[in-house]
Design a protein around this nucleic acid. Structure first.
Lengths: 353, 353
DNA sequence: CGTTTTTCCGTTAACGTTAACAAAAAAAAT
DNA sequence: ATTTTTTTTGTTAACGTTAACGGAAAAACG
């Protein structure tokens, strides 16, 4: 049973022979304190291990000093859009922190237009938020944002190295790829061939899909450097999704593909192909409605969950912790690589945005 | 951006034409309010959707009304005892809630002696805690505890039906068994045989081990009712752990065991047996040091994690939420069935108890 | 040396909730 | 009708932190 009570500002004031006003000035590093008293107060603070009471602090501040956070995500087009999940997590965190004076403003950009992202960033920067939560899809624009913002920005979903130091709450995609390698290798072994399917948008493979493929390939090369594996890759444009069966059919007939790794959330688009194949195992990403359905039907065998809702939740909690306690830990976080099979599909409360 | 500020007691008082004292009395259902004013105040509370500010409440109360929680766990004998994990989670939750006036007293009982559990329960009941967190290993004693306690008790780790209604934060062991079935079935299929190993203490199989075996068997019978699977079970006494190799060898030579399911945390005790077998896959429970080591060496292929630390953490958070907001939701919770392979072993901060 | 400016520091009123205390009103007893 | 008791209600001081306000002391200026 820990001690009944922490030191308060009043205690510090008494011990340092000053008033609470002076202690407050020292704590907030405000001017108006002579060097000697400042040192005296700091010594007492250090000796007592004083920690400010966040509840009392927020109680006082919440009324006038609202913590405003900007959240900039891709547009949520369909009801089962991936981006509704981070938003759900953000909303949940905010509802918990409402009485602590935390408020959110959502912004949405067109994921196909860099200009849309930039315009939103300009808007956000002009409106003076205490933190910015977004995704680093566009490299240059992300760099620009980090450079211009004087408040912390937290990037969700994807890690990419940027010029200035930035914060990331993300799943390690390289590890996720290795996990996929492990899951398929267990089932397929050295005899069968593997196929990695990347979906492209505007002709480019998203950076975390690339990292996942690298992780997948590294699983084999690092664990079995002496062995040869047949690992094929295909990039397919998301735009003409109906032609995917035709593109994949040849490789499936020519090669003995027994392991299929779809590096983004669209494994369900291979439904027709998978249905034709017996004895081929599939790993995909994200528990969207269609993937979950196929997992239930055992067309897909493993889904790797990035916990997007958890990412959103932790981002807001992390920002709050940083702004109230000055603790930067919560701004960076690696999300566990969660393996989902038919039997442990998570049950979420149905919730609309 | 939600409204700037919730209604406060002061607002309610003004709107109902009473003083804040009266509003407080109504909110706490204390006597001394006439029926008519009580109804008037309640109407305003309902109309405004007033919610009390937990921060302000705890700020006021934390100084005199400490929330004392009793945590009764099995003795932590070794440094890698399972029970240090829930304790770690509890400690983490308490450190977050320290300034909210939450304090813990730990108790430990000898898991082999029902009397030890009972004696601790008596002690706890005599000391007036606001909540009790423990495990329901002994059925009768657990029933007794629930009957006698006037405060909520939360059981961790294991679910078992009790006479009176009790609260459980646990992993669904039946589902966990089904997941194990899925993982092994994917690899072994219909040809090979399966072996379920239960460890016994004092001759009895723990209830959640039993639930796991049932789930495992149900996986096969529910998914493939028309097919026949060879699933063997062995109960082995934990006390003579060294003889386990001898006991298992015969069955391995006689039957084509290709899938091994160890229903408790002691998969590592089968190290010697597993090392002899190629082409046999193992699923075990809990990320203790030795299991993790064997997972790294690929002697064990899957570990199901019960997230014991998370269970402890959530128990304390749930109790706090209940005692401050009256919200019972957090007292009952199903923990996800987390599948761990070599590549996604969680990294925990090394922490001593 | 007196006056103004600057630096330093103490006092105080909030934030929303709680509960002890006191006061007023109503009911009961004389 | 007056006193006593009981019921009902209002007032107030905390909890710990914050920041505006103003007063004292010290420094700079004429």
């Amino acid at each position: 049973m820990k001690p009944g009570r922490n030191y308060s500002i009043k205690d510090i004031a008494r011990l340092a022979n000053v008033s609470i006003g002076t202690v407050d000035r020292v704590l907030h590093d405000r001017k108006g304190v002579s060097q000697t008293t400042k040192e005296r107060v700091l010594a007492v603070i250090k000796k007592t291990g004083y920690k400010k009471n966040i509840m009392a602090s927020r109680l006082k501040l919440a009324s006038n000093h609202i913590i405003k956070i900007a959240v900039l995500l891709p547009e949520i087009k369909d009801d089962w859009s991936y981006w509704k999940w981070p938003k759900l997590g953000v909303t949940r965190a905010v509802s918990e922190l409402l009485e602590s004076g935390v408020r959110i403003k959502y912004f949405h950009f067109d994921a196909d237009l860099e200009e849309s992202f930039q315009a939103n960033c300009r808007k956000i920067l002009s409106e003076n938020y205490s933190a910015i939560v977004t995704v680093p899809f566009m490299k240059d624009a992300s760099n620009e944002l980090v450079k211009l913002a004087s408040v912390p920005d937290i990037f969700l979903d994807t890690y990419r190295s940027l010029n200035n130091s930035a914060n990331f709450i993300h799943q390690d995609s390289h590890v996720a790829g290795m996990v996929a390698g492990r899951l398929l290798y267990n089932l397929v072994g050295e005899e069968g061939a593997y196929l990695v399917v990347n979906m492209t948008e505007n002709g480019i493979v998203r950076i975390n899909c690339q990292q996942r493929e690298n992780g997948f390939r590294d699983f084999f090369s690092k664990n079995f450097p002496e062995k040869e594996f047949s690992i094929f890759s295909i990039n397919h444009s998301l735009e003409d999704s109906h032609s995917i069966s035709e593109e994949l059919s040849p490789i499936f007939t020519q090669e003995n593909i027994r392991g299929l790794f779809v590096t983004n959330s669209r494994a369900f688009m291979l439904r027709e192909v998978m249905a034709l194949l017996t004895d081929c195992f599939t790993v995909g990403f994200d528990l969207n409605y269609k993937n979950t359905e196929l997992l239930r039907e055992q067309e897909i065998h493993f889904i790797i969950n990035q916990k997007p809702d958890y990412q959103g939740y932790m981002a807001i909690k992390g920002v709050y912790k940083y702004l109230t306690e000055g603790n930067k830990e919560g701004l960076n976080m690696k999300i566990p690589v969660e393996i989902i099979v038919k039997e442990n599909i998570p049950i979420y409360e149905i919730d609309t945005i």
